[in-house]
């Protein structure tokens, strides 16, 4: 590793000022589980790291009164996975967090880091996109918000400008009629995801009729994406087996996977269909069990 400055600001304002300096050869350090690997082995050279460790409020994790979930960007994935609130109100998010790396990695790795590294395979992205989450971005003075699905601009790239920091993720409340789940394919019990599919579905009470639905795909395009054609096919319809099959096949149309070590593009397309079907089938089973009522 090349030498770099290590800075540890104690306020958001200070952190953003530090991040604005040094011509972009500076990065925020949260858990470091991705960043350190890039610096040690990936040839990433930086002039400075800005540690978020002592910035207050960035690891806040709580439910608002309206039921929405606020996750400070530096909240460790382990804290999300183990939070009784998250497990109760957003079990799909808790489960997706538990899929990331190992227990050790999740002690350090943060939700903000997982998103800001903007790997197409980031495990938290599809479920948070499916749930309609918003990214709260700050420049140290004021906040702006973007829908999380618009947060990513390419592999390893986000809409964050110089001196900007992802401050928090806000997940809107899931109504009693809503269900969310993330399905992941991996080669071994600890792996980056080969393909990830998340569904959020809101049903007409007492039925399997879809009122609102988002289907998000990971690791099949330069950024996490939504399978909009499949979504359009589903909204307003009763989710039965035949529709599940058709929509799952349709989801493949939005996928633009590449071939890499983890899988070929063709295999990834198969997985998009299979995992979409599994996610939608889980949603249908949930609705039919009467979980809505």
């Amino acid at each position: 590793m090349k030498p770099f400055e290590y800075k540890r600001p104690s306020s958001l304002e200070e952190a953003c000022t530090m991040l604005a300096a040094q011509d972009g050869r500076v990065k925020a350090l949260a858990g470091g589980t991705d960043l350190l690997v890039q610096m040690k082995q990936g040839g990433l050279e930086l002039d400075a790291l800005v540690s978020l460790r002592d910035v207050p409020g960035l690891d806040a994790l709580h439910l608002e009164e309206d039921g929405s979930l606020i996750m400070g960007s530096a909240t460790p994935l382990g804290a999300i996975e183990n939070s009784p609130d998250v497990r109760r109100a957003f079990p799909g998010i808790a489960e997706a967090a538990s899929f990331v790396g190992s227990m050790q990695v999740r002690s350090r790795a943060t939700v903000g880091g997982n998103l800001c590294n903007a790997a197409p395979s980031a495990d938290t992205a599809p479920i948070l996109i499916a749930c309609g989450s918003t990214a709260v971005i700050t420049d140290g003075q004021a906040d702006r918000t973007v829908l999380l699905e618009d947060f990513f601009s390419g592999p390893g790239q986000t809409v964050l400008g110089p001196g900007e920091l992802l401050r928090a993720i806000v997940v809107p409340p899931v109504p009693e009629t809503g269900f969310a789940k993330y399905c992941k394919s991996f080669r071994s019990a600890m792996d980056c995801c080969t393909v990830g599919v998340a569904v959020y579905s809101d049903f007409v009470p007492g039925s399997a009729v879809v009122r609102d639905l988002r289907l998000a795909l990971g690791a099949v395009a330069p950024t996490p994406i939504r399978a909009r054609a499949a979504e359009a096919m589903l909204v307003g319809q009763e989710l039965d087996e035949a529709l599940t099959d058709r929509a799952s096949l349709e989801a493949v149309a939005d996928a633009l996977p590449i071939s890499d070590l983890r899988a070929s593009a063709a295999y990834r397309k198969v997985l998009v269909e299979v995992l979409s079907r599994r996610a939608l089938t889980a949603a249908r089973a949930w609705a039919e069990r009467g979980a809505v009522a």
């Binding site: 290590y6 470091g32 589980t33 540690s51 382990g78 990695v105 002690s107 350090r108």
Partner: peptide
């Protein structure tokens, strides 16, 4: 008390 990979934790953190 939290398990971490010490190879990915900067000492100053």
């Amino acid at each position: 008390g939290e398990p971490v990979n010490s190879c990915l934790t900067l000492a100053h953190e």
